[in-house]
Amino acid sequence: MNRLGFMSYNYMGWSAEAMTEEARRHGFAYVQFDPRQAVQVMDERPLSPERAEKIRGLFEDAGISVVGLSGYTNLMNPNLAKREQKLQQLEQMIDLCSAYGTRYIATETGSLHPTNSWKDCEENRTPEAWDELLRVVDRLRARAAKNGAVLLIEGFALNVLATPEQAADMIGRLGSEGLGLVMDPFNYLTQDDLHSRAQQAAMANIFERIGAHSPVAHAKDSLYGEEGFTTPRVGAGQADWNIYAALLAERLPDVPLILEHAKPEETAECLELVRKAFHHAAGK
Rank of each mutant, 00 (worst) to 15 (best):
L152G: 12
A81V: 15
P164S: 06
E266Y: 01
G101E: 12
K263C: 07
L248F: 02
R103L: 13
L75S: 10
P114V: 00
A16V: 03
D43K: 05
S196W: 05
G175P: 08
L47C: 11
F59P: 07
I94W: 11
Y100K: 06
A268Q: 13
E227I: 02
A157V: 08
I105Y: 14
I153G: 10
E22Y: 00
L273S: 04
E122I: 00
T102F: 11
C121Q: 06
G175M: 05
K146R: 15
E177G: 06
H218A: 05
R141K: 14
F156A: 03
C270H: 08
N242T: 13
P35N: 12
G148Q: 14
T107F: 03
R103H: 15
N2L: 03
R275H: 14
Q191T: 08
T107C: 09
K284H: 15
N242D: 15
Y72T: 08
A219V: 01
V216R: 14
A268K: 12
I210S: 11
E250F: 09
F6Q: 04
M183N: 07
V41F: 03
S214M: 07
P114H: 08
Y224Q: 00
M93H: 11
A106T: 15
S176T: 08
G57N: 11
D184A: 10
E177V: 00
N187P: 02
W241F: 11
E128P: 06
S15E: 02
R83N: 09
D169N: 13
L151M: 14
D61V: 01
D193G: 01
V39H: 10
H213W: 13
R233E: 10
R45C: 11
D34M: 12
S214K: 07
G235Q: 12
Y9C: 12
D192N: 14
F229W: 03
H218Y: 14
G225E: 04
G5T: 02
M76G: 05
T163K: 11
I171V: 14
A149Y: 08
S176Q: 13
I64C: 04
F59M: 06
G235W: 12
L96W: 05
T109E: 04
A217Y: 08
A62S: 12
A236W: 01
E53T: 09
D221S: 03
